[in-house]
Structures are given as C-alpha cells and as structure tokens.
Simulated scan of single mutants.
Amino acid sequence: MWGLVTTIAYTGFLAGPPIVGGLAHVSSLVVSIGFVALVAALIIPATWLAKRATRQPAGV
C-alpha cells in the first residue's frame, strides 16, 4: 500500500510542474493555477470515496 502512495506522490512531484507550465504556456497562468486549485479541491472527495470503498461491512 505504501509503495502505491509513494509512486503516486513521486509521479505528481515529477509530472506536476511541467503540466502546469505547459498549461500556462498554451493558455494563461490564471487558468493553470485554477487547474491546480481544482485538482487540490478534488483530493478530499476522492479520499472520502476511497475510504468508503475500502471500509468493511458491519458484522464481518
């Protein structure tokens, strides 16, 4: 499990800045920062859904 978390973190660390820079290059810095804010805002609902999906049913 921790290997998956580490892989996702390193991928975001390495791929995030070029993606944001490329998006800013083709559009504007405001759009790219808005994209970062959108992705950051989606982290909490994604963790809630992942936690609910891995929860064991009662009585098991």
Rank of each mutant, 00 (worst) to 15 (best):
W48F: 13
F13A: 13
L23Q: 04
F35S: 08
G34W: 01
A53Q: 10
L14A: 13
A40F: 12
M1E: 03
S32L: 03
W2P: 01
I44Y: 15
A15D: 05
A46L: 15
G22Y: 04
G59W: 07
G3W: 13
Q56N: 03
G21W: 03
G22D: 02
V31K: 04
P17N: 06
A15V: 14
T54M: 13
V39K: 02
A53I: 06
S27W: 12
S32E: 02
S27R: 11
S27N: 10
V20P: 02
A53W: 13
Q56H: 07
A37T: 08
T47L: 13
H25P: 00
P45Q: 09
G12I: 06
A15Q: 05
A37Q: 03
P17H: 05
A46N: 05
A41T: 07
I44C: 00
V60I: 12
V30I: 11
I19Y: 01
L42D: 00
G12M: 05
A58N: 06
W48T: 08
S28P: 09
P45K: 07
I44R: 14
W2S: 04
P18A: 04
L49D: 01
T11S: 13
F13V: 14
V26P: 00
L29M: 08
A41N: 04
P57Q: 10
G21E: 08
A41R: 07
W2V: 05
S28E: 05
F35I: 01
R55G: 04
V30L: 11
S27A: 15
P18W: 02
T54H: 04
Q56F: 12
V30H: 09
G22Q: 06
A40D: 02
V26H: 06
Q56I: 14
Y10V: 15
G3A: 12
G34Y: 01
A50I: 13
V20C: 08
T6C: 11
F13G: 08
G34A: 12
P57D: 11
A9F: 11
